[in-house]
Write a protein that binds this DNA or RNA. Structure first.
Length: 857
RNA sequence: GCCCGAGUGGCGGAAUUGGUAGACGCAGCGGACUUAAAAUCCGUUGACCGCAAGGUCGUGGGGGUUCAAGUCCCCCCUCGGGCACCA
């Protein structure tokens, strides 16, 4: 055979087959096919300027293996890719250079696409999507308008991070240790006008829906904790000398008799009335100081409680006790009622506060067993009621319901459920995002809108959405779907406005419009007011949507990527449903995955979608660390680029090695030496498949080869199903090593190995498949089936143990009986040496596996 | 502080219903081929004792259940992740 025929020329092989797949549209997903569908989805990337790093493809390779495997198993497979391309970096680059973010984005997308294509994924590129494409964000806006129409969007002043140096509002993730991530400038809390989505209305559904999802437990737990449901009671405390009531939320109504003081949050609406004159100054100073503290400070100083007595008292509805009311910033206005009854005996935080300010601590729960050590205050375990009047002696937990119903009878409280989940601040004061399709009008024009026939009237929420601007109240009107997409205007420069508003606020000809209350059409006020009676003067909303918006529903757009009339055609959604497999980083455990579930459930409730949940099965790939064991980062200089790896070893080696590194979910370091190992394996496969002198035609005749082949088919198949790709690769290595050792094997055996290998190393598999006479593409040939009857050996090895320690072994016919084996074990020379002078007390036989003789003496 | 997850050779990792610990790969050592190298192949490689046959120990540490424990139970240590005044 010729030397050069054995060369593994991965570069030309990979180029050739990538062209073939593209030309033949091998991986086109068929709409409305008779076959069962299989939808494998990757969390789509943000196309950064830095390009792909070695961590990106890990998940993509995993989903690609599943996609190719399922295709071979006869499924109609959808494996798409797209770009989550709105975001801050392109905008910051624009501020620096004046380059339009769309240009930067386009260049980055092109680079990402080139890199991803070079890895040879089974992607249907005809379905590529881009969140910055007006044809895409038209539907992002459309969904927003639905939410608006249903009263799930509102506008409110919310505290956000403001960086005076950058003159910009920053997202939480852009603030690190109280400084801006870019440039390390100080940041502060500022109340700014925000568009907010009422995700809290979906708290219960989002919580309940988790049960049916095949997701990592830790991710479900994180979402549960984030939603933070708790059950308790709202209790009204009378205020001494006032008709007002102070309402508190507690999960421990059973400790009502132990409330020795009350606390309201510094922002509590009743605070002003509660503070007596002598305390005014002190309280004012305290509230102001608390307002200046960021959330971070409040948390950091958590251990050091602070507060001021207001001078007022509540009356405890249970026992009529006079209870002092304090203001303290350890109570948050955003949770519950913004006020608590403090029970220092049974709450750690209240205990600490009470000790510091010398407030009485009254025990009302005792351990039933009287164990003093375990019931030290503050005690929050189970127990019986004490010092609680008529309730004394009752089980505390059982008492909760009783106290709630007694309070209800007295009209002093009721059972209540609370969530930690907060509404979703949905606006960003930025240019490079989806414009929010609302305009603002005066009260007069708004009222006119509610009476004007046309499409706008029906799109209004039940309760008007308002905001304050320059001392006037403005009313929100939606653009109708017919006016979407509302495109981003061109701007001169991308500098922030400096007022905390988006750069869009600096473009009067876009901002100020004539709005038709009947049709929803807009015309710039730079032009004359059009004829007709329904045109009013309006101002556009200048906020844009957060990056999460586009990724909330992209899994749907892949099903019908260029439909101009529907977000997704109902019959396509009905056929494809959600992804059968969704893979991406665990860092998205809460936000992206919760927001997407919210939108998806909402669209389901609206009748737009057939399925309630977007992602039935979810998986998180583990991080790939640098060779030094540190997280890959530019500053450490341990970043590995796939381009370099592909040039040196080929895409197949890259794919194979990313999967061979270890369990998919594990965090694991990269290794240059390691990739050489899998590269050697591919060379070996290449060499063996080209060794015509070793090839036999017809079925495999060598028993051992046949057995190992089918064992490999079985193990690789199971390993793929279980996402244990590293184990699958090991098994293929074992088979390749065997084929190299034996003198001959059937071409059919080699071809079966190639089929198993194809999902992992598709280029080489295609090349060798063709060279062995297979017709391309190997991806279209049915997955091999393991003949399990071949796996049962005629002879089995049974090991002999004495007291659990291995002392010998022997071969037996596969249907050997217990007596024979035990007799043989006892007769074994070595076993005997360990039995000598001892008494056998027990004989264990595990059929087909082992004998264990327990001895003593 | 609270809630999870993980600790197995020099390294990445196998052993997924309690049943031969260390598959596969890397690195190392010895050898074959070669003028030489590369490539490839063969052998060897947990620790300790022993010339050997063989033995003893061994899955973060300590205890326990069992004929049998990496796997189950209790306590502890280390690392990783999440939450963090949510009443």
């Amino acid at each position: 055979m010729a030397e050069d025929e054995q060369e593994y020329d991965f570069s030309s092989i990979e180029r050739r087959w990538q062209e073939f797949w593209e030309r033949e549209k091998t991986f086109r997903a068929e709409d409305g096919s008779d076959k069962t569908k299989y939808y494998a989805l990757d969390m789509f990337p943000y196309p950064s300027g830095a390009g792909l790093h070695i961590g990106h493809p890990e998940g993509y390779v995993a989903s690609d293996i599943l996609a190719r495997y399922r295709k071979a198993c006869g499924f109609n497979v959808l494996h798409p890719m797209g770009w989550d391309a709105f975001g801050l970096p392109a905008e910051q680059y624009a501020i620096k250079t004046g380059t339009h973010p769309s240009e930067t984005t386009q260049a980055n997308v092109d680079n990402f696409r080139r890199q991803i294509k070079s890895i040879g994924f089974a992607i249907d590129w005809d379905r590529e999507i881009n969140t910055t494409d007006p044809g895409y964000y038209k539907w992002t806006q459309w969904i927003f308008l639905k939410l608006f129409q249903r009263g799930l969007a509102y506008v409110d002043e919310k505290p956000v991070w403001w960086c005076p140096e950058l003159k910009a509002v920053l997202a939480n993730e852009e603030v690190v240790n109280g400084k801006s991530e870019v440039g390390s400038h100080p940041v502060e809390r500022r109340n700014l006008r925000q568009v907010v989505l009422r995700i809290t209305a979906y708290a219960e559904k989002l919580l309940a829906g988790l049960d049916d999802l095949d997701w990592p437990d830790s991710t479900k737990r994180q979402q549960k904790a984030w939603i933070g449901r708790s059950e308790g009671a709202e209790v009204q405390f009378g205020i001494e000398g006032s008709d007002e009531k102070l309402e508190v939320y507690t999960t421990r109504p059973d400790t009502l008799f132990g409330a020795t003081y009350m606390v309201v949050a510094p922002e509590h609406p009743l605070l002003d009335k509660l503070v007596i004159d002598e305390k005014k100054e002190e309280a004012k100073a305290y509230v102001e100081a608390a307002a200046k503290k960021s959330d971070l400070d409040r948390t950091d100083l958590a251990k050091d409680k602070s507060g001021v007595f207001t001078g007022s008292y509540c009356i405890n509805p249970a026992n009529g006790d006079k209870t002092p009311i304090w203001v303290a910033d350890y109570v948050l206005i955003s949770y519950g009622t913004g006020a608590i009854m403090a029970v220092p005996a049974h709450d750690e935080r209240d205990f600490e506060f009470a000790e510091k300010f010398d407030i009485p601590i009254n025990r009302v729960i005792s351990r039933a067993d009287g164990d003093e050590e375990k019931s030290k205050l503050p005690y929050s375990g189970p127990g019986v009621m004490v010092n609680s009047g008529e309730y004394d002696g009752m089980d505390a937990d059982a008492c909760k319901a009783k106290i709630i119903s007694d309070l209800e009878a007295k009209n002093a409280g009721k059972g209540a459920v609370n969530y930690k989940l907060r509404d979703w601040i949905f606006s960003r004061q930025r240019y490079w995002g989806e414009p929010i399709p609302l305009v603002w009008v005066s009260l007069e024009d708004f009222e006119k809108a509610t009476h004007t026939d046309g499409i706008i009237k029906d799109l209004l929420p039940e309760r008007a959405v308002t905001t304050q601007k320059d001392g006037k109240t403005l009313y929100a009107l939606p653009l109708p779907a017919s006016e979407l997409p509302l495109k981003l205007p061109e701007v001169e420069n991308y500098q922030p406005s400096g007022t905390g508003e988006s750069p869009l606020a600096t473009i009067p000809e876009w901002l100020e419009v004539w709005f038709d209350l009947s049709t929803g059409k807009t015309v710039s006020r730079a032009e004359d007011r059009p004829d007709g009676g329904n045109w009013v003067s309006a101002t556009r909303e200048t906020n844009t949507m957060p990056q999460w918006a586009g990724s909330c529903w992209y899994h749907l757009r892949y099903l019908d990527p260029s439909n101009p009339d529907h977000l997704v055609a109902p019959e396509k959604e009905a056929y494809w449903g959600g992804p059968d497999f969704y893979i991406g980083g665990a860092e998205h455990a809460v936000l992206h995955l919760l927001y997407a579930r919210f939108w998806h459930r909402f669209l389901h409730d609206e009748g737009v979608l057939a399925h309630p949940e977007p992602y039935g099965k979810l998986f998180h790939q583990g991080l790939i660390l640098g060779e030094d064991g540190n997280k890959m980062s530019k500053s450490v200089g341990n970043v590995v680029s796939p381009d370099i790896v592909i040039e040196a070893y080929g895409a197949d080696s890259l794919r194979l090695f990313e999967m061979f590194l270890g369990p998919l979910e594990a965090v694991k370091p990269w290794s240059e030496k390691g990739i050489e190992g899998v590269h050697r394996f591919l060379r070996k496969v290449n060499r063996e498949c080209l060794r015509k002198d070793k090839h036999l035609s017809g079925e495999e005749t060598d028993k051992e080869t046949l057995r190992l082949l089918h064992e490999t088919i079985l193990k690789v198949t199971e390993a793929i199903e279980d996402l244990r790709f590293n184990v699958a690769i090991s098994q293929m290595m074992i088979l390749a090593n065997h084929m190299q050792k034996v003198e001959n094997y059937s071409v059919e055996s080699a071809k079966a190995l190639l089929q198993l290998l194809a999902p992992f190393a598709p280029h080489l598999a295609e090349e060798l498949w063709e060279k062995l006479g297979g017709s391309p593409s190997i991806a279209n040939h049915p997955w091999p089936k393991a003949r399990e009857e071949l796996l049962v050996a005629d002879e089995i090895t049974i090991v002999f143990q004495v007291n659990g320690k291995l002392r010998g072994q022997a071969q037996f016919p596969k249907d050997v009986d217990k007596e024979t084996v035990i007799t043989a074990a006892k007769g074994d020379e070595k076993v005997q040496s360990f039995l000598e002078g001892k008494e056998i007390v027990k004989e264990i036989y595990v059929p087909g596996k082992l004998v264990n003789l327990a001895v003593k003496g």
